[in-house]
Amino acid sequence: MILLVAAFLLWAFGWWLNVRLASGPLADSRAVQLLVAAIFGITVLAVWELLVRGLQVPMVILPAPSLIAVRFASSTDVLWADFVQTFLKGALCGYAIGCGAAVLTAILVDRSEFLRLGLLPVGNFVAALPIVGTAPILVMWFGFDWQSKAAVVVVMVFFPMLVNTVAGLRETSQMQRDLMQTYAASYWQGFFKLRLPAAMPFIFNGLKICTTLALIGAIVAEFFGSPIVGMGFRISTSVGQLALDMVWAEIFMAALAGTLFYGAVALIERSVTFWHPSQQG
């Protein structure tokens, strides 16, 4: 009972603190914005901890954050092996192959107006489909190991990347193309000096969307069969053993990997497309 009251009080205090900060004079500074978000996150975690303990929620329903943290710290070797299997081998390989193939295809498609007209609606259509469903087929073809996960990722990222790149390569104004023509520039000169740089914001938008898709593909594909290592494998088997602290530790790992992956791509984007208005806000 005391813990429940404490949870309620802590929530009220956290909220009060954030109200003060958000209406304070420094509310527009970056530090305060980070602080407010952090206070909110910490408050949620603390209230979760207090409620789980106060209500004595069984571990098989919702483990306390402290238990998850302990589990995370004590099984870093397993988590690392899972990370290497699922992220470095499955997701990252598939991401590189899929995005690379999509960009090359987009460059080919871009030379032909007819192909572009035909492929863009098809690409948009396929990008909206539940592609993870191809996982059982690809596991059947490429085996249980990471190759099949990479294949799922390739299929998942290909079309969103293709659509974004094709759209980006069209993103030049008539005037810019006329300018290239007055210089009597060749196709590839126009491509490398104008259209490819102009497409970069779109290409990076596609690359950012695909970071999340790659992780989803690699993890979900493991639900259809995997060797005895991998994040998706660990999640599904730990769920079966009702070891929910391990499941949450693995999910935290996935969240960390996803955020860092996205952040890394966003960082590269900032250095490549520094000139774009969206990067100058």
């Binding site: 006329d178 009597a184 740089p197």
Partner: peptide, 19 residues
């Protein structure tokens, strides 16, 4: 003339590449 780069063309907008 275009191919022998006989003229320079200035458009209504500057159209400089931002990158």
């Amino acid at each position: 003339a275009r191919r022998s780069r006989a003229y320079g063309y200035v458009f209504q907008a500057a159209g400089l590449y931002p990158w």
